[in-house]
Design a protein around this nucleic acid. Sequence first.
DNA 1: ATAAAGTCTATTACTTAAATAGACTTTATG
DNA 2: CATAAAGTCTATTTAAGTAATAGACTTTAT
Lengths: 166, 166
Amino acid sequence: MKISQKGLYAIQALMMLARHHQQGAIKIRDIAYEEVLPEKFLELILLELKNARVVDSARGAKGGYRLRRDPEDIRLSEIIRLIDGPLAPFGDAEQLRELIDRDIAHRALYQVFLDVRDAAARILDHTTLADLIVDQSPRAGKGGKRNKNQKTASILPMVVGGTKGD
Amino acid sequence: MKISQKGLYAIQALMMLARHHQQGAIKIRDIAYEEVLPEKFLELILLELKNARVVDSARGAKGGYRLRRDPEDIRLSEIIRLIDGPLAPFGDAEQLRELIDRDIAHRALYQVFLDVRDAAARILDHTTLADLIVDQSPRAGKGGKRNKNQKTASILPMVVGGTKGD
DNA sequence: ATAAAGTCTATTACTTAAATAGACTTTATG
DNA sequence: CATAAAGTCTATTTAAGTAATAGACTTTAT
């Protein structure tokens, strides 16, 4: 699975909508401005998210976009699959299972690919927009208030991270 | 991280060389035949693997390719990085760490990306060519002989695998 | 009526992926 | 020492994917 610029933009746009979830319709222009995204490109992305029923739109003056579901009900895996396709590093999970069944010589390899996709799926299925957003209001961070239901971002001791470049 | 056809071909070619590791130089043609790979394309891939010092070649009659190291010393992560780049789903690990440090608004998102790359790295760093190859000799599978040092392929109960398509 | 917004279709420029082709170089060996 | 067998190198092609940009069209609040 590779996340494209477009995929990143989609996630950023949805994070912005999640932050402003109480505030009714948000204009494309405002999303583009706040997240620093190319407006015309963002337009197409939002249309795609709309067709996938992740967001809703209102046309005309006072129009704009909003999330169709609460932030805690929109998973990162869903967005990534939508924009960038399967989570597997090669093919998709179904194909891989098929190959594991039929291609004896390469079975072990495809099983590793499937393990990688399962590991990614576990993480991305369990992460929602609500887990990602931080309060960006002016006096944020001063009080002890924590984001409701937010899993404190993992911050692993980078056990494997001995690898420098990647 | 996305594994391309080329990346898959590279891994397959190296698996073939691992299977024939005792047998001296192996011709491109034989690799291509046994693994069913486009010969001319494979040629370029092997050249790349050679420049990266993963394989060695001999020119002229009786020439061919061989692994430069034992199969248990060639990790899947190394091959994939070489052919398809960083394991991270976006950018590379170093970039992600930088972004986690500097981009407060998107810190949690980039941390998730880094978690995904770490999960992939853990799996791919621990899998070597020796783990992937199966004995393909005529009477293979009849005796109780197991592949020396082979981690029995994981075969997870696909906990997350509720997801059908991918 | 008008301005503000989303919608739709097309086009562009660029890059990458996946090969294919052919001439060139090296080496074993009869 | 000629020759055939092999790897090496450079170029080209074709197709697809990526990241936009442009502009006309439609809907809606006021």
